[in-house]
């Protein structure tokens, strides 16, 4: 486990404040959907810690992309990278989405910049013969991410915006009301994940999986910084496994595994 140097080959700007960096890896990569990489930002001095990012699109075994919104010094650095620039990446890390044993009706729910882990998942589910629908939510039309990229896979995409400027007006989870699903896969803000969890509990829909986000320092399990409370203490740890690590036991959890 060592950070490896990767190279930016293309820089796309799918929304005014969002950037997709297509990167070339030194070896063939085969990450699971939902797994992530720790990306270095700058020289690691002023911006001391690497940042966790799910990979987004897969163009070839060595070519993956990362999609992010510019929110702070780390993402500002990444947004400033241009083709041929190099950065360090460590991964793939964590536990991704479990795939169904066979064809199912799969619904993907993304809020804000939550779409990255769902793009490759959609592709894998299609490969298994699943019927895949993606629901994308955002504040406003220009912030809806991933729609053309998901539509290019040939799946149905529905959108919801807070201001009604694209698709349904209201939370993206309201779109779930009219949709039959065997599996539900979600990534987005905490409020959205809670709403998905509540729907999973109410239907019930046991095959519901949530990709969590957390501040973390290491990404490989040693800092204990990304703790999330387990719904049930880990039996292997007796009464004391109160917390799971988002980076290690996650970032994907079944809806009833954690308290969010």
């Amino acid at each position: 486990m060592r950070p490896r140097e990767i190279r930016v080959v293309e820089r796309l700007q799918p929304a005014p404040d969002c950037v997709e960096l297509v990167c070339e890896f030194p070896e063939d990569e085969g990450p699971q959907s939902g797994q992530f990489y720790m990306l270095s930002v700058g020289d690691g001095r002023d911006t001391y810690l690497p940042r966790p990012f799910s990979f987004y699109r897969v163009f070839s075994p060595r070519r993956l992309s990362f999609l992010f919104r510019v929110v702070g010094p780390g993402t500002r650095f990444l947004a400033g990278l241009r083709p041929r620039d190099r950065l360090q990446a460590m991964g793939p890390l964590g536990r991704g989405f479990p795939l169904p044993d066979g064809p199912e009706r799969a619904v993907l729910v993304a809020g804000g910049v939550g779409v990255p882990p769902l793009w490759s998942l959609a592709r894998s589910l299609l490969g298994l013969g699943c019927e895949v629908t993606a629901l994308l939510g955002a504040r406003t039309r220009s912030a809806v991410l991933g729609r053309p990229e998901l539509e290019a896979l040939g799946i149905q995409v529905l959108t919801a915006t807070d201001d009604g400027s694209m698709g349904h007006r209201g939370p993206v989870t309201e779109l779930l009301g009219g949709i039959e699903a065997d599996g539900l896969y979600a990534c987005g803000p905490e409020g959205m994940l809670r709403a998905v969890r509540d729907i999973a509990a109410a239907r019930p829909l046991p095959r519901t999986y949530l990709a969590l986000e957390a501040a973390m320092a290491c990404g490989y399990g040693i800092c204990l910084g990304c703790a999330v409370e387990r719904a049930q203490p880990d039996p292997a740890l007796g009464a004391y496994g109160t917390y799971a690590r988002v980076c290690r036991e996650g970032p994907v959890f079944r809806w009833d595994e954690v308290r969010i």
Binding site: R45, D46, T47, Y48, L49, G74, A215, M216, A217, C223, L224, G225, C226, A227, E229, L237, G238, Y240, T242, Y243
Partner: peptide
Amino acid sequence: EPWDGVQGIRIAETPAGMLNAIGLQNWG
């Protein structure tokens, strides 16, 4: 005895460094 550690945010980056508040989570 085992300690649970801190509930809530445990990591924040600061200029040229980081804050941690793990709270000595350990298994005893």
